[in-house]
Structure formats: C-alpha cells, structure tokens
C-alpha cells in the first residue's frame, strides 16, 4: 500500500485525471491503493464482483476469455497509463472478462464500491466521474469495432484491401 501523498502525485501526473477538482481528487486518493500483481495473477475475474478499476502504472494486462479445451483468447492487451475496468459502475457490477497480468504489473486500484455510493449521493460528483469514464468506454468500443473490421486481412472489407500489389 502506497502513501496517500504518493498516490496524489500519481493522480496529478496522469492524463485520465486532467483538470480534476479538489474534492474528487481527495475522494479518489482516499479510495486508491497501490497494488502489484505477479505474472499470471488476475486483476479481474469474469462473473465476479467488479469492485475496482485500475490505472496501470507498469507491465501488461491481458483482457481475455477462457475457452474450455483451448488457450484463453486474448481480446486486447493493456499497458502503462491505461485505465482498466468499467464494470464497477454498470449494474450488476460484475466483471465481463478476465484481466490477467502477463508480466509483473504495478497498478493503482480504486475502490469502486465506495465511489459508487458517493456518486449516487452526489450527482455532480457522479457526472464528473462518468465524464472521465465514458471516453474510456467509447475508446474501448471503437477499438473493438476496429478489431472486428479485420483491418489487415485479405478478405476483409469487401476486398478493398491494401497489400503491396496495387492491382492484379
């Protein structure tokens, strides 16, 4: 567990918290914790309570789905500076995917349960938090859609494909 003072510095330095007001900052510092995950450890488990979100400070996290009889399918990897987890603010507050550290991961975790209550009690605060998370969610959705496009495959997008034969 880090000191609140260090946590404050980390928050101040991160673009996710750009322009944050003092009240929310104090609140976030109060519900943040420094965590470390060894390779293979899970930050989130599919179907389990999603009570946290993470600001990854180092290492790589794989967001993945377990497939019986096969290796887990990695949907995307996330690294330094990225924000992981938004199920904590969407009922029923259950993680949709597994999030696994593929190497040693350092992260700040934030207590979503505590934050949820405060957001419900104080809509202005709730709006402030939401307006930081909606872009994260939108970005995630865009990336997923782009992945669906299969941008580099031969058969993708109706054949309008770049490869380095410009014609025949």
């Amino acid at each position: 567990m880090g000191q609140p003072h260090d946590l404050g510095n980390i928050i101040d330095a991160h673009p996710f918290f750009d322009g944050i007001d003092a009240e929310l900052r104090t609140l976030l510092v109060g519900c943040a914790a420094n965590e470390r995950f060894e390779p293979g450890e899970f930050l989130l488990r599919e179907g389990k309570a999603a009570d946290k979100f993470f600001l990854i400070r180092g290492g790589t996290v794989a967001v993945e789905v377990d497939v019986p009889g096969k290796k887990p399918i990695i949907l995307e990897t996330m690294g330094e500076g990225e924000v992981l987890g938004w199920s904590w603010m969407v009922a029923p507050f259950m993680a949709t995917f597994d999030a696994r550290a593929t190497v040693a991961v350092r992260a700040l975790s934030f207590d979503g349960k505590c934050l949820r209550k405060k957001m419900a009690a104080d809509p202005a605060l709730g709006y402030a938090v939401m307006s930081r998370f909606v872009p994260v969610m939108a970005h995630r959705l865009q990336q997923t859609r782009m992945q669906l496009l299969d941008l580099y495959g031969v058969d993708a997008e109706g054949g309008k494909k770049k490869k380095k034969g410009k014609g025949d």
Binding site: T60, I73, I74, L75, E76, T77, Q147
Partner: peptide, 22 residues
C-alpha cells in the same frame, strides 16, 4: 500489435491505432 493472439504470442493484442494512442 496483433488483432488475434495465436501460438506463443506474448506481445500486444489490439489494433494499431492503440499504439498510436499510447
């Protein structure tokens, strides 16, 4: 980065725009 990790891939998964965003 790759769209789909296969085999022993231990690198990034996601679209190339993610790398730009970083």
């Amino acid at each position: 980065t790759v769209d789909r990790a296969t085999g022993k891939w231990g690198g990034n998964v996601g679209v190339v725009t993610n790398l730009v965003a970083k």
